[in-house]
Design a protein around this nucleic acid. Sequence first.
DNA 1: CTAATATGTGAACAAACGTTCACATATGGT
DNA 2: ACCATATGTGAACGTTTGTTCACATATTAG
Lengths: 109, 109
Amino acid sequence: MVRKRLDEDIIKEMKSQEVIDKLARTFSVFGDQTRIRIILALTKEELCVAELSILLGMSHSAISHQMRALKDLDLVRCRKEGRRAYYSLNDIHIENLFKEGLKHVLEKI
Amino acid sequence: MVRKRLDEDIIKEMKSQEVIDKLARTFSVFGDQTRIRIILALTKEELCVAELSILLGMSHSAISHQMRALKDLDLVRCRKEGRRAYYSLNDIHIENLFKEGLKHVLEKI
DNA sequence: CTAATATGTGAACAAACGTTCACATATGGT
DNA sequence: ACCATATGTGAACGTTTGTTCACATATTAG
């Protein structure tokens, strides 16, 4: 009984540890000017790597690396069309999260 | 006329650059397990450095450094009481931002 | 006053990060 | 088949970041 209770506590602890970790990694991905600009662009329309590359004035390689980071944390989804890879924001939470951040920032400037 | 128009555009551009920068720095501050745990603790109650230090099992120095980072970006406010420094979340946006992040993370686990 | 306690801070170090470079893969057109 | 185009990826490099350490400051107790 006590044993089971302890196990549950450990699992709960580990789960919240997992949540804290993913939360930190998610916010961390937002914590970069390049990725903010990518997300900002994607709030308006779906874009491919080449378009983002021109829009931000960066190499396709740099963009591609960043897109992977965004994809790994489910912040964007990818739709392949021929040789293009079109990216868009994954869910409504991403935009809400972004806007909530903006609210705070704009209030204090 | 054209000159003025250009100036306005530059100012607008710089402003949005400033916004993007602060947005990135704000999210970046959230992007760390230690600070997530600090913020999580502060959603429940106002706490001083020593209390946070015990709660997270970290040195007071480490906590103090982190509190400065959080304070610099207006995420927490500080109330001095004797030799104690009590910290609390600064505004409702912080909690909303945090919760919006949680929503996304919990959805994908 | 002195000693003890609570917090703040600069320097230093290792770890994590973002970009570039070179190259790999994959698709489309001819 | 070929070559051009679009994207992906590993290694390397310089930069940034978080913690520790040593010490500074500030407040309270005696």
